[in-house]
Design a protein around this nucleic acid. Sequence first.
DNA 1: AAAATATAATTTGATTAGCGAATAAAACTT
DNA 2: AAGTTTTATTCGCTAATCAAATTATATTTT
Lengths: 158, 158
Amino acid sequence: MEDRTETSLIALRRILRATELNARTLARATGLTTPQLIVLEIVVAAGRATPKDIAGKAGVGQATATSLVDKLEARKLVTRTRSERDKRVVWVAPTEEGKALLSAAPDPLQKTFSEQFQALPDWEQGMIVAALERVGAMLNAGALDAAPLLDVGAVDRK
Amino acid sequence: MEDRTETSLIALRRILRATELNARTLARATGLTTPQLIVLEIVVAAGRATPKDIAGKAGVGQATATSLVDKLEARKLVTRTRSERDKRVVWVAPTEEGKALLSAAPDPLQKTFSEQFQALPDWEQGMIVAALERVGAMLNAGALDAAPLLDVGAVDRK
DNA sequence: AAAATATAATTTGATTAGCGAATAAAACTT
DNA sequence: AAGTTTTATTCGCTAATCAAATTATATTTT
């Protein structure tokens, strides 16, 4: 393998590693497990979502989504409401408590990243965005590009 | 949040998403679960590793590492050997079968990435490597850079 | 050298995650 | 109206994961 290819893969793995560890830390901080946190983030970001949406975005089966929603509902972080228009569907929406929990536990990784990124010179910001998008495109070229899971970031916006 | 910061985060999330899905696909293809596959990769990369090493590198607790090694050992993909020098430690090493399994299941994501990467013009390769390393550094700046996942292979041995 | 402390792996007991298959209800199709 | 599809849920089962307790071995202190 080309040397630079290898180097890029290593760099990628470091990124994955950092974000993965961060997810666990964050989950702990909130008292939720990682999958539960992901579901809550999805619901908060979207305003409301069906179990099917959640399953798709979180990359798990519907049955799993249901059970994760169960947990969150039990903790009063989300509510379930049957849709009037189509009574098969259930809307899962965050409670105030659910929203509060997320904003009270700001993602430390995202925070440091954002701060540092914004401190970079303009040309470097541009370079990084271009490179990340290039890499994302390359990775998604193989796997058929699935739904945009992680509009998670929503978290920040005041 | 600055627009470009947001854009970069979205790009990052797409990357994470793609690799996550890939991990599952790969695990299925090998008949292993994702954590099991990660452990096997660690062991193969390092030549041999203790459960403690594995726990650190895989980012799980020692108890979990032990149980994952159990599964792999049951399938004869790795072996356990007590160290002579220090009888508290156990060396986990891949069997031929374990190594074969990994090489027989080439990572599709890594493959397409490598191919595409190598097809890029020189300047772009350089740009991507630089950007990925920059991002990795930024991410690891916040979280105290935990165990260097990828010094895999460093370990002792003859 | 004996006692205390530390380290490594494992076992145990519990919860959570996750899947596939089956079920139930509602909505579409023909 | 009958059949098909979609949505959510339930059920049974396996795997992952952790914390705490346990066992064996090393290291350090007295």
